[in-house]
Amino acid sequence: MIEVSWALDHLDDLAFRVAQHIELAAIPVMIGFAISLALAIWAVRRPVVRGPIVSASGVLYTIPSAALFAALLPVTGIEIQTAVIPLTLYTLLIYLRNMLAGLDGVAPEVIEAADAMGYGRWQRLLRVELPLALPLIVGGVRLASVSTIGLVTVSGILGDRFGGLGFFIFEGYRHNFGIEIAFGAVPTILLALAVDLVLQRLQGRLTPWAPRTVRAIDPGRADPGRAVAGGAA
């Protein structure tokens, strides 16, 4: 059984690539969150900038991932930012749509009540609007995490220093060795599913008041509530 012995011999490599995969996914998910939150608050405060911000993140989301990684290679070289910047850019649309939908969903009466109680703008944002938007915001984190875990594999086109578990997929293809490909592909899928499950639990814990029907907005999916109005995705 050459396959089994090969797999046992490469457990160290697997551990290294899993750690790298998590690192390459976690950094963009966190940086993307911070950038998107700032942009979402800006867009809510100044409706003029809202359209351009959402359109720009939509354009970035449309560019195929292999192309965006390759685009940075001549600019930033074989450094971690070459992998992290595109991955961060892809999270923006997912975050923004959920944050904006969450903030839009705060009832005007609630905002008026907060104003009447003497909340300042920032205080109202922190204590009233953001907590009410939390179910969708956390839903956005969940979608962004799962999508980034998948995209990390593509960073393997930048060379052996990147790719996380995707390294094994490229390497296995070069060696024409199916087990090595599976060594990368199967743990990637399991990692995505595991993170989705953990964040789903966390979503329930963080926002116990939210109905279970609150669904994050997936840029790849129409919004059934607006289907008839024709304003989907």
């Binding site: 999508s147 593509v154 997929i169 293809y173």
Partner: peptide, 19 residues
């Protein structure tokens, strides 16, 4: 089906189908 589609990275599908 849609949720599963999201968790399946394109590279993983290519890799698993290839052999």
């Amino acid at each position: 089906v849609a949720n599963l589609g999201r968790a399946l990275p394109s590279l993983a599908i290519i890799g698993l189908v290839l052999p």
